[in-house]
Design a protein around this nucleic acid. Structure first.
Lengths: 338, 338
DNA sequence: TTCGCCCGTGTAACCGGTTACTCTGCGGAT
DNA sequence: ATCCGCAGAGTAACCGGTTACACGGGCGAA
């Protein structure tokens, strides 16, 4: 592979001149520039980005560290990030911690010298621990993680408000006994959604101890919840699953037992995955523009890279929107409370 | 940020010793190593991967260049790649050409010096043109692209065989007049699927000019095809869409017109996106393990990086599997040909 | 004519690591 | 006691670019 030295020799100039000509800097006469360009073409020279970024102290790359790559959630985040990054001429370096907290440190460390900034979606570990891993000198924006004590900018979804709104909507549609299917216990999103549900039930529904079934965000666990619900003869006229995936499983479980949705029971989810619209009846849910989570974070990172100083104060909280569809059709349930 | 020189000074040794100690090479006494490690801890030293890869001539990174990041197809490919790459301790550098052929060259060029190898899914351009872009010195595996004249290894899906098999299956289930909804004209996958359909119809079905409606892989175009089909009064008892997305739109269009699936018309797709199982009735389709496309390609790349020489001869062709579901339920259609 | 300035170009240091080669000193063999 | 071998450590070149600074020549001003 040809190096800049080769080009310079071929063109009969010094490396400095070759470099200037190639990068379109001033102080190069037209003939000289032409000679260099000819050499570039002849030798098929392509600048070595690695070497370049070493001196420039700039890699034009942003590291993206996610807990997983499974499912639409992460791919949408990546797409959102890429949308903005591409516009700014930056590349994405993916670091997958594969769910392991331990690998997080390694993933972050291996980014040093490869990226100009970091977009991190931490697993559910203590902020102090995270602070140990992160390099304070490296611009970092957190995804879906309230920095708390750390003074880092972050982008998150207002899960609490979203869950509250959905619960309220179910109550407004006539449901009295709403059951929640929770997400993984250690998951921040899941906890916030559960809090929103409980608070809405208490304050708006006047229910003292709202019913909650365990789940883990998987379709499978939604199915299990349906069985639990029916076998346990838990009185319920609506179920609010902490995510769409579980709602899908839940509906399958209800259908299995001959329960009509929304006829016997209303169902709602959270996330608005594409599948939601295609179910029959279609699934009511809280719409989260996941890609915006990524693009917003990337835009914040770009601002930091441009010299602005952003702290936790400049966090962005995205509010999900209520999408009412078939599974919470109030008309259907009106006459037939379970 | 602390450099190796800082660590060496702090530990009272030379950079060479510090480097050896940190990398666990021999020729370092235990006390010396301990001193270096203490300095590392004290200064919070993290090696600069960029500098390291410059001398090692190894980046532990593989460049992934895709035409787009939209939809499940690409995210599954990335996940498949990551699965294998992570195992081998490699990172993924994403290069998105955003559908533009022109950007392809830039994307590939900007990878030089950043990656050890390339996984490229080229848009539908001439192989000779692609050869111009690619660096012959950089190990490269193509995704979903028959190298043709180039002697590059590639991984692809046998779209022709898949389409042929599905068409055959529809015929076997009693369909006589199968209509195909084609994908984008310039798309290689789409063309192969269409060829498979046409050949099966001709050879197995004995149909001279099988009916084909235009499409572009989008749900929207599937919906349009349904309208075209019904308004045009094209005789049909089965529709084979070139991908699931269009099949979904098609089914919506048929439902709109009061046509029952599979009662009035059987429907089949291609890809087996997750949504397929959840439709009601569930969608028959050709299952493509998209993630394997990525993981297989990555495994081939690793072999090249280990020193093996792989050419077009070592290409892998993945054969999709027929998944018969509700939309092609033969029993339902038996008595009611449209 | 001479001085000073600026423009085009070259030299070499530098980015932050790795590593070939060199050097020193100590233990064992002769 | 002398020599050899080798382990532990250091010096400096190198990876492939960028760029501060030096340098020489041409031109306008005095």
């Amino acid at each position: 592979m040809a190096t800049l030295r080769d080009v310079a020799r071929e063109a009969g100039v010094s490396v400095a001149t070759a470099s200037r000509a190639i990068n379109g800097l001033g102080n190069v006469t037209a003939p000289t520039r032409a000679a260099v360009m000819a050499a570039v073409k002849k030798l098929n020279f392509v600048p070595h980005s690695g070497a370049r970024s070493l001196t420039r102290r700039k890699t034009d790359t942003v590291g993206v560290i996610l807990p997983d790559l499974f499912g639409e959630f992460f791919s949408e985040i990546i797409r959102g990030i890429d949308l903005v990054a591409h516009e700014a001429g930056m590349h994405l370096l993916l670091g997958n911690m594969h769910g392991s907290t331990h690998e997080t440190a390694a993933a972050i460390a291996s980014m040093r010298g490869r990226v100009d900034g970091l977009l991190v979606m931490p697993p559910d570990l203590k902020p102090e621990l995270l602070a140990d891993y992160l390099d304070p000198a490296l611009p970092t924006v957190l995804l879906n993680y309230d920095a708390g004590s750390l003074d880092l900018p972050f982008v998150a979804v207002d899960n609490y408000r979203g869950a509250y709104a959905m619960t309220e909507a179910l109550l407004a549609r006539g449901a009295r006994q709403v059951v929640h299917i929770a997400g993984p216990k250690h998951n921040r999103d899941a906890r916030d959604r559960q809090r929103g549900f409980v608070d809405a039930m208490t304050k708006v529904g006047g229910v003292r101890n709202p019913a909650i079934l365990p789940g883990d965000f998987s379709e499978e666990s939604g199915l299990k919840a349906a069985r639990l619900l029916l076998e346990g003869q838990l009185p319920a006229d609506a179920v609010f699953a902490a995510n769409d995936q579980m709602a899908v499983g839940l509906i399958a479980g209800l259908a299995e037992a001959g329960k009509a949705v929304p006829g016997n029971m209303m169902v709602a989810g959270f996330d608005d995955i594409p599948l939601a619209r295609h179910l029959n009846p279609s699934l009511s849910t809280m719409q989260v523009h996941i890609d915006r989570l990524g693009s917003t974070a990337m835009m914040m990172l770009l601002r930091i890279l441009r010299g602005e100083t952003l702290g936790a104060a400049s966090a962005t909280i995205l509010t999900p929107a209520l999408i009412a569809r078939g599974t919470t059709d109030a008309m259907a349930i009106a006459g037939t409370p379970a």
